[in-house]
Simulated assay, not measured.
Amino acid sequence: MDALSDVLRLVRLGGAVYLNGDFTAPWCLYGQANAALCGSFLPPAERIVSYHLITEGGCWAALPDDPESAIYVAAGELLVVPQGEAHLLGSSLDITPGPTGELLESQLRNSPGQLMALRYGGGGERTRLVCGFLACDDTLSNPVLSALPRIFKVDMRNDPQSAWLESSLRFAAAEAAEWRVGSAIVLARLSELLFVEAVRRCIDALPSDRKGWLAGVGDRFVGRALALMHAQPAHGWTVDELARKAGLSRSALAQRFTQLLGQPPMQYLAHWRLQIAAQELRGGTKSLAAVADQVGYESEAAFNRAFKREFGMPPAGWRRSRGEMAGVSAAAVAAAGGVDGAFDERGA
Score class of each variant (00 low, 15 high):
Arg109Trp: 10
Asn110Ile: 13
Ser111Thr: 15
Ser111Leu: 12
Ser111Pro: 05
Pro112His: 09
Gly113Thr: 14
Gly113Phe: 06
Gln114Asn: 15
Gln114His: 12
Gln114Val: 11
Leu115Ala: 08
Leu115Ile: 14
Leu115Thr: 12
Met116Ser: 13
Met116Ala: 15
Ala117His: 12
Ala117Gly: 14
Leu118Arg: 02
Arg119Phe: 10
Arg119His: 13
Tyr120Cys: 04
Tyr120Ser: 09
Tyr120Arg: 10
Gly121Thr: 03
Gly121Met: 01
Gly122Phe: 06
Gly122Cys: 02
Gly123Asp: 10
Gly123Thr: 10
Gly123Glu: 03
Gly123Cys: 11
Glu125Arg: 08
Glu125Leu: 00
Arg126Trp: 05
Arg126Thr: 07
Thr127His: 00
Arg128Gln: 03
Arg128Phe: 01
Arg128Asp: 04
Leu129Met: 00
Leu129Asp: 02
Leu129Cys: 01
Leu129Pro: 05
Leu129Ser: 00
Val130Pro: 05
Val130Cys: 08
Cys131Ile: 00
Cys131Pro: 01
Gly132Asn: 04
Gly132Lys: 05
Gly132Arg: 06
Gly132Val: 06
Phe133Ser: 07
Phe133Val: 10
Leu134Ala: 06
Leu134Met: 10
Ala135His: 13
Ala135Leu: 11
Ala135Gly: 14
Cys136Val: 11
Cys136Trp: 03
Cys136Gln: 14
Asp137Asn: 14
Asp137Pro: 02
Leu140His: 07
Leu140Met: 09
Ser141Pro: 04
Ser141Tyr: 03
Ser141Gly: 12
Asn142Gln: 15
Asn142Met: 11
Asn142Arg: 12
Pro143Thr: 05
Val144His: 13
Val144Ser: 15
Val144Gly: 14
Val144Pro: 15
Val144Tyr: 09
Leu145Arg: 07
Leu145Val: 13
Leu145Met: 13
Ser146Met: 14
Pro149Tyr: 14
Pro149His: 15
Pro149Trp: 13
Arg150Asn: 13
Arg150Lys: 07
Ile151Ser: 13
Phe152Tyr: 14
Phe152Trp: 11
Phe152Ser: 09
Phe152Asn: 11
Phe152Pro: 06
Phe152Ala: 09
Val154Glu: 07
Val154Ala: 07
Asp155Glu: 11
Asp155Val: 02
Met156Glu: 03
Met156Trp: 04
Met156Thr: 10
Arg157Cys: 10
Arg157Ile: 07
Arg157Thr: 07
Arg157Tyr: 03
Asn158Asp: 12
Asn158Gly: 07
Asp159Asn: 05
Asp159Thr: 02
Asp159Gln: 06
Pro160Lys: 12
Pro160Ala: 09
Pro160Asp: 10
Gln161Tyr: 08
Gln161Pro: 03
Gln161Trp: 09
Ser162Val: 02
Ser162Ile: 05
Ser162Asp: 02
Ala163Glu: 08
Ala163Val: 01
Trp164Gly: 12
Trp164Cys: 11
Trp164Met: 12
Leu165Trp: 01
Leu165Gln: 01
Leu165Cys: 00
Glu166Arg: 07
Glu166Tyr: 06
Glu166Met: 05
Ser167Val: 05
Ser167Glu: 00
Ser167Phe: 01
Ser168Cys: 03
Ser168Glu: 04
Leu169Met: 01
Arg170Glu: 10
Arg170Asp: 09
Arg170Trp: 04
Arg170Cys: 03
Phe171Glu: 04
Phe171Asp: 02
Ala172Gly: 01
Ala172Tyr: 00
Ala173Thr: 05
Ala173Cys: 09
